[in-house]
Amino acid sequence: MQQFPLLPRELTPESVLCALQGRRGAANGATARDLVFIITGKVSGAEERRLRQIIEKLRCDGHPICAHPALGYHFAATASELEATCMFLTRRMVTTGRQVAAMNRVAMPDFYGQLGLPQPTDDEEIEQ
């Protein structure tokens, strides 16, 4: 059975890529909620979580999917947009690392060493 593009579909990597094809550049971003509605025709918190998991997989497969809470999800239109998303994700990783180190009562230099990562300099760290 052929599926028409305007009919609600299931969230899959293919349907997410299809929905993002017309969303190149930060000015064309869409929130997770909007993308879920565009693809499935319904709004669901569980489906938004599924969308985030699919986007994570697509990024790991090399797709240049950018996102920022203020801009929504979109394909990178420029190298600077992709770099901005990479920096945003790195900052989130550093913030999460701080939380993990504090909960385990491990100093940040030790935590970074356990992960085999160089410790960022003070100007690279994020204000809390």
Rank of each mutant, 00 (worst) to 15 (best):
F75S: 06
S15G: 11
K42V: 01
A67G: 12
G45H: 00
F88S: 04
R49N: 13
G45V: 03
R52D: 00
Y73I: 00
H63Y: 15
D123V: 05
A70F: 14
V36E: 00
H68C: 01
A46N: 03
F4A: 09
R33V: 10
T12L: 12
L6W: 14
A70I: 04
H63D: 14
L6F: 14
P13N: 05
G62Y: 10
T121Q: 09
L58K: 00
Q3P: 09
D123R: 04
L7Y: 10
N28T: 11
T78I: 10
Q21S: 01
E124C: 01
R49S: 08
I39F: 03
E14T: 10
V43L: 12
L117Y: 09
F75A: 06
P109E: 05
E127I: 13
L58Q: 12
G97N: 05
D34V: 08
T78V: 11
Q128V: 05
R98A: 06
S80D: 13
E47T: 00
V94I: 13
E10M: 08
G116H: 03
Q99T: 12
S44A: 02
R59I: 04
G116L: 02
E48C: 10
M87W: 11
Q119Y: 05
T31F: 06
I39S: 03
G25D: 07
A84E: 08
R49I: 07
E125C: 03
S44L: 01
G45A: 00
F37M: 05
R23F: 04
L17W: 15
G29V: 04
R23I: 02
F88P: 07
L7P: 13
F37L: 06
E125N: 05
Q99E: 15
M1R: 05
R49Y: 10
V106C: 11
E47M: 06
V106E: 09
T121C: 12
T121I: 06
P64T: 05
E125H: 02
G72L: 02
N104S: 06
F4S: 08
R24G: 06
E48P: 02
Q3G: 00
S80W: 13
P69K: 11
D110T: 15
R91W: 06
P120L: 01
R9Y: 06
P64R: 04
A102E: 15
Q3T: 11
A79Y: 14
P13T: 02
Y112R: 05
R49L: 14
A70C: 10
P8I: 04
A101Y: 12
A46M: 02
A46F: 04
R9E: 09
T40M: 03
Y112F: 12
M103I: 11
Q119K: 10
P120K: 00
L35N: 01
T95M: 15
D122N: 10
L117R: 08
G116M: 01
M87R: 15
A19W: 11
K42P: 01
